[in-house]
Structure formats: structure tokens, C-alpha cells
Design a protein around this nucleic acid. Structure first.
Lengths: 253, 253
DNA sequence: CAAATAGTGTCTCTAAGACATTATTAG
DNA sequence: CTAATAATGTCTTAGAGACACTATTTG
């Protein structure tokens, strides 16, 4: 892993024994996204200790003797009061790792950021210090501690992009859902009003995106309209053909 | 960052002071890809120390007081003899982070993997221990140390995917290149023979993918054919419309 | 009833891919 | 000369998007 020619003794030892290098703290932070009232929300916590005491931040904590993924699940469960059972319905994927020196004023901390998508999560419980954790609409931009604003931005871009090529949107709705509910997810994440008719035909034409349950909703919409058919997630890992965002010229160059 | 309700004193301290948790070693490993003789090659080094002594591995090393990206650049430069100047022509991006307990038998090591694309890199210099670093064609599959086989796989999939949506292929060719050279990159990475005529028209039709230099090659191909026009990289960040792989049904589900 | 919504039909335009064709060069 | 390759042309078909339209439900 390290070269042995022409290196100092400490470098040689380091190649042999990792403890010869200054160790670092490794944390897992989570960008947890859900949709409430037709708008995308992110889970934020208010820091109770310095640095950045009182500032909003992504939930996170130190990686212990578990896997990185498990550490992220643990932090998510702690802040949301989610039971292990509920975690099955939450999509969790690695987003990226942020380790610029100085990003934490206390010491060198490298954080592995994760992205979580959930159809619905309970409000963080009051009591303990969980009243300092809230689902925040993304439109209400806040200052975030550390480099969490950058991590959140990267997470949003990843989410928007994955809606195009994967059936990820089904992670934001319940077990059974209507095409309209699915469209509401795209509308919220992309912040665009998609055309209802074209979207409907498109979703049904992508193999494996959704499969019919044969059922319909009990009632029509709150302001009228027929009952909608219910679908569940299909077996496709990728959407083909993809469901591309209406691209804006300025984002291409 | 951590909750304070109902936690042990050590946990409270850890929330305040990261050093209360057991530190970990952080390394940067590089999946460096280039194209030689029309085939994709990856840079591998032979380990001179245990564990996995004598086994092939991805180049990598410990992150020091620099940024993760800088650590990756340093490792790449060390193994290839690349000068800082040459690094400008190398595309380097973060691939993912691998930290399963036990992936390094010595201690807990979390590695941040990077993906590098280069048009051409010198053979690792003989002498020192660089003779243990070689460009290896991907067809010649080897056993790799640690979880490097998995990292390499992930890197390959990332590379194949990014050729579709980004002008990344231009990172594998020289400053000025012909459409045929560009097609050879796609052929090598995707392991498919693309149709020359359709590829040609497609590349020129994507805005900002390539721009003409007005020049042509000095000679035709080695076995005949007209001189080819020369192009350089355009200003597009994303290819639109994308250049999709002929998708195989079994990879979608 | 009117308004809203689910779902379908139709038309146009773009783009992908199969294939053919012409021009230019090496040997 | 022949073989190979660059570059362009033609045709077919799939798919995206604009828009219209029908059916069904709520209030």
C-alpha cells in the first residue's frame, strides 16, 4: 500500500502499522428527506454543544464498531424515534465523504454522508432533547453548521438525479400508491409541475416501474374526480427509458 | 450532534470531544484507469508488506494533514511518477467510502476510494519499488487484497455510467482527438463495438461535447482511409441528449 | 349542477439505429 | 489497383411533449 524505497522510518512504520499515523475521528451524517404537504423536507437538529451551539445541523454521530451504514441507521433512528422495523421502508445510500481539514474546529473529523428517503416519518418526539429535531421545508433555507449546507446541496442534487434513472420516487410514497401521488413526489423534488396525462402514460410504459394491485382508492379526490387505481413498486432497478427532467440550458454547461 | 438525554458520561463527553471515541485510520485508495492498445487498464501495485504481502492491490495510502482529494493525488503521483503539472490532465473524483469492520485485519481502517481517468500515463518507473506497479488490462482478472475487488468493480460501473451522461470520455484522449479515437474509448470501456457512422453523427449533434479545431490528422489510418478532423473538448458538463449504452435487459431488473 | 381529477387518444417533432453511399487515403 | 476508414445521407421506429377529450367523482 505504501512504497518502501527512500522513505523515512516513520513512513515505513506507517506502511506496516497504521497507528503510526495520526488517527482521525469518523462520523456519519444523514440527509434525511421526506415529503410533507407536497413539499420536500429535510431532518435538522439543533446543536446543544459547541462548536456551533444553537445552530442547525444534519443529524449525525461517531462511527463505532459497526459498519458505516449501520452508524447512519443508528443516528436516523435516534433522531426520529424510528423502530428497526420501520427502517426497512427507508431507503439509505451513501452520498459522499467530506474531510477537508478544519471543517470541524476541534480536530480532524472525516464524515461519511448518507442520503435517506422515507415515505413518512413520525415527528421527532418531544422530551429528551428531541424537540430540537424538526422536519424543515427546503424552501426555508437555514444556515447550517460545519459544511452541512454543502452536504445538503449534494444530497438534493443526488435525489433529483436519481428520480430520473431509478424507481426511487416509490420510496417517498406508501406501500400502495396512485400515479398522482407518485407525480406529487416528482413535483416536490424537482420543483416542477409535470403534465398529469403525459406523466401517467410514461410511468405505465416503463417496464417494471410500477405494477397494478387491481384495487382503487375508496374515494375520489378531495375536490372531485374519479377513484384512482392503486399500484405498488415494480421490480425494475433502473428506469428504461429514463424519466428525464426538463433540462435547463444553464445547467448543462 | 449527539443526544444528551439518558446517555452515559462517556457518550456525553464524546459528543463534546471527538477524541473520547476510538479513532480510526483513514486512507485514500485510487482506481486509476487508462486505455492502452484499445483496452481499459487499471493501475495495480504489489504489496511488499503484510497483510496480503505479495498480493495485488489498488494504490493508496494514509490521509495526512491534507484534503482527501490531495491524498489521492499524492498516491497517484507516487505510483506513476506523475508530475504535479501532469495531474491537471487527470480527472479525479470521489468514488465511495469503504469501512466495514475487519476489512483490514490490523485495525479499523476506513478508506475513501477515488476514481482517476487519464489519457496516457507513463509506465511506473523501475527502481525504488515502483517496478511493483503495473498497468493491468481489466480482462486479466486478478485477486486483489482487502476489498479492493469490490472497489474496482464499483469504479468500473461508475466509469461506464459516466460515459453516458458526461463528456468524461474526453479525459481518456489527448488534447486534440478524432471522433474515431473517442469512439475507441467508448468501445474499450463499454466493451461494445459502436456503429462508427451513427456514433460520429451523434457526437457532433450533442451541444458542447466537442468543438472543431479546423485541423486534420497528418496522415490517414495505418491501413488507409482519409485524414480525420481534429476536435477538442467542448464546454458541456453534461451530455444532452445522453449517449446511452445499448441496455441489456438483465441489468435493468 | 360545476369543478376537479383519472385516464386515454392524437398529433408533431426529435432522436436512435440500421443501413447505404461517397470521398479519401495507405499500401 | 484494393482495402480501409471518414463522413454524410436515408429510412424506420420509439418516445417525449403539447393538447384534446371522455369518464367519474365530490360538493
Amino acid at each position: 500500500m505504501r512504497k518502501t524505497g527512500g522513505m523515512s522510518e516513520s513512513e515505513f512504520l506507517a506502511g506496516y502499522n497504521p497507528q503510526a499515523y495520526k488517527p482521525m475521528a469518523v462520523t456519519a451524517d444523514v440527509v434525511a428527506l421526506t415529503i410533507r404537504d407536497g413539499r420536500l423536507h429535510v431532518l435538522l437538529v439543533r446543536r446543544g454543544e459547541p462548536p456551533f451551539r444553537g445552530a442547525w445541523a444534519l443529524p449525525g454521530g461517531f462511527v463505532r464498531d459497526d459498519d458505516l451504514q449501520e452508524a447512519a441507521e443508528r443516528e436516523l433512528a435516534e433522531e426520529t424515534g424510528l423502530l428497526p422495523h420501520d427502517l426497512d421502508r427507508v431507503h439509505l445510500e451513501q452520498l459522499g465523504t467530506y474531510g477537508k481539514p478544519g471543517r470541524d474546529p476541534r480536530m480532524r473529523v472525516v464524515t461519511v454522508a448518507f442520503l435517506a428517503f422515507a415515505p413518512w416519518l413520525p415527528d421527532p418526539k418531544a422530551g429528551s432533547d428531541a424537540d430540537a429535531a424538526v422536519w424543515t421545508p427546503l424552501t426555508a433555507t437555514r444556515e447550517l453548521a460545519f459544511d452541512h449546507a454543502k452536504i445538503l446541496d449534494d444530497g438534493l442534487e443526488r435525489a433529483r438525479s436519481k428520480l430520473e434513472y431509478t424507481p426511487l420516487a416509490t420510496s417517498f410514497v406508501g406501500e400502495e400508491f396512485t400515479i398522482s401521488e407518485l407525480r406529487a413526489v416528482y413535483d416536490a423534488v424537482w420543483e416542477e409541475q409535470l403534465h398529469a396525462g403525459n406523466f401517467h402514460r410514461k410511468v405505465l410504459s416503463v417496464p417494471g416501474f410500477v405494477e397494478s394491485t387491481g384495487m382503487t382508492t375508496e374515494r375520489g379526490g378531495p375536490r372531485g374526480g374519479p377513484r384512482a387505481r392503486l399500484y405498488r413498486k415494480g421490480d425494475a432497478k433502473y428506469l428504461h427509458p429514463a424519466l428525464l427532467r426538463p433540462s435547463r440550458e444553464d445547467e448543462i454547461r
